[in-house]
Write a protein that binds this DNA or RNA. Structure first.
Length: 323
DNA sequence: TAAGATAAGAGGGACAT
DNA sequence: ATGTCAGTCTTATCTTA
């Protein structure tokens, strides 16, 4: 553990200015590993290039905690005998304390409470990071995304969102959120299956995270799903090409907003297959896209309303070239 | 046999109370 | 805070071409 604590100093090296307003006046909050622009308020943490294991960020916390509480051993037994100390203003015999001593005791009580807050965070994080490790290895989450998830979790902890709720759900939700942010295709269902918590709770927690932390999720573009589905179905490149063109044209006409992107992708591929004359049944396409037949049909209906004319190969080429 | 239709249920957002 | 409403997506089952 110790050798990794030493590496912490490299953490922030790459950040020099705010990516939005260019200000160099950045405020660091080392407890959450967050960096905020003092000019425009942008959280620039995401810009930080930070490869490595997730508990490097964790050790930031650990370092401050250790500085307060001493050895790692006392960290583990943090609560023993400490919680009832420093109460009242009388000594052991019930005698009133003098002012000097009372002030001293007040300071001690203050420090004691503070260190306990830090300690609670530390313990929470320890449990959370173990869970994070377990889930991400089960889901094959690459390190940078895992790192992102850890960061999100820490921000949630800092904002006191977790008290009274389950750590596991927050870890799972953080991972899902990190995947969305980094455009790593993982279904909420898949993440939930690895977690001890049910999908319902995790999805609720995910939305809580997005709302409370103001996470900015990239809108996932149906076009991104096309190639994956196309390769699963082994359709011709031409078909895939036309599917993309269909989506582009639908997007121009505001036909994609608010719909499940996977359903849109599935419908466009199905449509493209039909136009090229490649035989694929709805069930196949829907399954490859990870959605249902019904959804595919509904999207298909929407596409047909928006795009009454066929998208031929030539038109597809024209649409693509124009971009 | 594939495609379409319909029903029922879950879950969440918007909006009012 | 709680309830209602419209809209989405899912699963299951039935009908149609």
């Amino acid at each position: 553990m110790e050798r990794d604590v030493a590496k912490v100093t490299t953490y922030y090296l790459d950040v020099k200015s705010c990516s939005r307003c260019g200000s160099r006046n950045l405020i660091r909050d080392t407890k959450v590993g967050e960096e905020v622009c003092s000019e425009c308020g942008l959280v620039v943490t995401e810009e930080i290039v930070n490869p490595g294991p997730e508990w490097r960020a964790f050790s930031m916390e650990e370092r401050t905690t250790r500085a307060r509480t001493g050895t790692a051993a006392s960290y583990t037994y943090y609560d023993m005998g400490m919680s009832t100390n420093f109460i009242g203003n009388r000594d052991g015999r019930g005698k009133q304390l003098d002012h000097k001593t009372m002030n001293k005791m007040r300071m001690l009580r203050l420090y004691d409470n503070r260190s306990k807050v830090e300690d609670t965070w530390g313990r929470n994080l320890k449990i959370a990071m173990v869970e994070l490790e377990r889930l991400s290895s089960g889901l094959h989450i690459p390190d940078p995304v895992k790192e992102q998830a850890a960061l999100i979790y820490r921000r949630a902890l800092k904002r006191d969102l977790i008290r009274g709720r389950s750590i596991e759900a927050f870890v799972a939700a953080s991972i899902y959120a990190a995947c969305r942010m980094r455009r790593l295709p993982r279904l909420l269902r898949t993440v939930s299956k690895q977690s001890t918590r049910e999908q319902k709770e995790i999805s609720r927690t995910y939305r809580l995270l997005v709302r409370e932390l103001g996470l900015r999720m990239p809108i996932d573009d149906p076009i991104k799903y096309v190639s994956g589905i196309a390769s699963k179905l082994e359709v011709k490149p031409q078909t895939e090409f036309i599917a993309v063109s269909i989506l582009r044209r639908a997007a121009e006409r505001q036909g994609l907003t608010g719909k499940d992107p996977r359903g849109m992708a599935a419908a466009s591929i199905y449509m493209a297959c039909r136009e090229v004359g490649e035989r694929r049944i709805q069930k196949e396409v829907a399954r490859a896209a990870g959605t249902s037949e019904v959804t595919l049909r509904n999207r298909l209906r929407g596409l047909e309303e928006i795009l009454p004319e066929q998208v031929s190969w030539d038109e597809a080429a024209a649409i693509t070239v124009r971009d």
